[in-house]
């Protein structure tokens, strides 16, 4: 294992130290609970937004804490969900009297830990808690017979749109309803060219041959749905975009917010090349791209590969997208 770390057991805590050193003007850190807070939280009268999950997906979620996005991000161990204590502490801390929305990615552990935290919040405090479970990954079929679709790329876009809505003073009911609409409008699909190594495990989660790629991956280094021969970028883009387009379905005249996301180990030159391919495919399908993101936004440590996310966008979504945001991971208009 070649990593810039000191001790596998200290990776998350030491990364938080660096996060505060770099962004202490906007963020503060609760080291005991491993929670990253917006510096001015709680904001009176504003719905508090909390997300969290395993670490190793940076900039998600800690990089999206700040004005216009999240109030707090709870950091679990690498690829392991945070525990109820952390989520409960954050829920109590960010409540400004308007209630708190939990943004949960659909993984068994995340859902259970957030559920336990919401039960504890209901029993121990007066904070009103709602939650949205993001499940946008089209690689998972047969949702009736699985834990359901995973929460992946749509989470980034949802945190931006819902963050803007909360900042503008919308109520908990309105913010929660918006979150459900964004989730329903978003679909993602990813592929990996390499595996990744969890520091505590010390070796790659799966082996992938030089001439193979893993199609339909999640974001935890877990193997995907199918192993296929390595394809050109043009073919790979088609393998990612086709299942997304047929799933919602999107059609001629629709407008989307599009994201080509790197998994952590793929250079931007390849991501832009992929974006060009995705753009061409959407043009062919008569789908307009209202806004886009190209870069590393929801990653799996050093995994090489990428994912494509499309969120069908109306004017309201585009306006929320354009609203000011000031976080380490996304910043414009502020």
């Amino acid at each position: 294992m070649k990593k810039l770390i000191n001790d596998p057991a200290d990776v998350v805590a030491e990364a938080l130290v660096g996060m505060e050193a770099a962004h202490g003007d906007r963020l503060r850190i609760d080291y005991e609970h491993k929670v990253i807070y917006r510096k001015d939280a709680p904001r009176q009268g504003k719905v508090g937004l909390i997300s969290g999950g395993g670490s190793g997906h940076e900039p998600l979620h800690g990089g999206y804490v700040g004005p216009g996005m999240l109030d707090a991000a709870c950091c679990g161990e690498v690829f392991t969900s945070p525990v109820p204590d952390q989520l409960l502490a954050a829920t109590t801390e960010v409540d400004g009297g308007a209630g708190v929305l939990h943004i949960v990615k659909n993984y068994t552990g995340d859902v259970m830990n957030f559920e336990m935290a919401a039960e504890l919040a209901a029993a121990e405090s007066a904070v009103e808690v709602r939650s949205v479970v993001v499940d946008d990954d089209v690689a998972v079929q047969d949702s009736l017979y699985t834990a359901g679709r995973r929460g992946v790329g749509t989470t980034v876009i949802l945190e931006k749109l819902v963050g803007a809505a909360a900042e503008s003073g919308r109520s908990l009911d309105e913010v929660a309803a918006l979150a459900d609409r964004v989730n329903a409008a978003g679909r993602s699909m990813g592929l990996a060219l390499t595996s990744c190594t969890v520091p505590a495990a010390g070796k790659p989660t799966f082996e992938l041959g030089e001439d193979e790629m893993e199609l339909g991956i999640g974001i935890h280094g877990e193997p995907g749905r199918k192993r296929v021969p390595l394809a050109s970028a043009r073919e790979a883009a088609q393998l990612l975009v086709d299942p997304i387009l047929t799933d919602l379905p999107y059609g001629t005249g629709d407008s989307v917010i599009a994201m080509v996301n790197g998994m952590g180990g793929t250079p931007l030159i390849e991501l832009y090349l992929m974006y060009g391919e995705v753009h061409r495919l959407l043009e062919q399908a008569g789908i307009g791209i209202a806004r886009c993101l190209v870069g590393n936004y929801i990653t799996s440590l050093e995994m090489a590969g990428c994912s494509v996310t499309l969120v069908k966008a109306d004017d309201e979504f585009v306006d929320l997208w354009d609203a000011p945001v000031n976080t380490p991971g996304l910043r414009w208009g502020a």
Binding site: V83, D85, M112
Partner: peptide, 12 residues
């Protein structure tokens, strides 16, 4: 266990 394990195993 709930507060130290995380994942699904902690709650279970």
């Amino acid at each position: 266990l709930v507060s130290s394990v995380g994942g699904a195993s902690g709650p279970l």
